[in-house]
């Protein structure tokens, strides 16, 4: 990090500025999810018993497994940045690839988890969905919308890291100019931390 150019004197290179922009963008992402967390807290308050029961229908093992996957992927992402700062391009690339693979395996798990519910007839518009108690329905509505939006962010994140890997291969990202990789890393950590909140709210609080 010390080797990076931190002054704004050179107009086309301002790493602190780039990081600041990324952090601001992450704030907006947090607020985007914030609206949903707001809905969750209100509906949970209004339908405590229903939420309590509905949460037991989620598979806590898959949830825990996915949490471990995302936490590990955050670690490999951070390590790839450190590797880059130490001029170890090969290691950085392989760590980025591992991060992408972990992201994809998270999505695969998520797919099977959603499919289980859908096979049980719990999805918006189904007869079961329309006839269940409104508390339980709101739980699953929030579950689908929040984990769905999160999964969308996982997809965007893996694509983003994929682009970074390409940049690294092509030497656009180098050991003294890797703020792009850092920004992608920050985004990936955001995806991780949102899941850290989603996991207890949907799986653990029963």
């Amino acid at each position: 990090m010390i080797s990076q150019d931190n002054t704004a004197v050179h107009a086309h290179r301002d790493d602190i500025g780039s990081r600041m922009g990324m952090w601001l963008f992450l704030f907006t992402e947090l607020l985007l999810f914030g609206g949903l967390f707001f809905l969750y807290s209100v509906y949970r308050f209004l339908h405590q018993a229903d939420f309590h029961v509905a949460a037991k229908e989620l598979d806590i093992i898959i949830g825990t497994f996915n949490t471990a996957i995302l936490l590990t992927s955050s670690l490999t992402m951070a390590m790839s940045i450190t590797a880059m700062s130490r001029d170890n391009k090969k290691l950085s690339i392989s760590l980025q690839v591992v991060t992408i693979l972990l992201g994809i395996s998270f999505l695969i798990n998520k797919y099977f988890e959603w499919m289980t519910h859908i096979n049980h007839g719990i999805y918006p518009g189904s007869n079961d969905y329309l006839s269940m108690d409104s508390g339980r329905r709101l739980f699953f509505a929030l579950y689908y919308v929040m984990t769905g939006l999160h999964a969308l962010h996982v997809i965007v994140g893996t694509v983003l890291i994929g682009i970074m890997t390409r940049f690294t291969v092509k030497n656009v990202i180098t050991h003294d100019s890797y703020v792009k990789l850092e920004a992608a890393g920050l985004y990936w950590h955001l995806v991780d931390i949102i899941w850290i909140f989603l996991f207890p709210l949907f799986y653990l609080i029963t």
Partner: peptide, 11 residues
Amino acid sequence: VGLFDPALGGD
């Protein structure tokens, strides 16, 4: 999904 639709329990 019914998050806001009163017919589905939303507010």
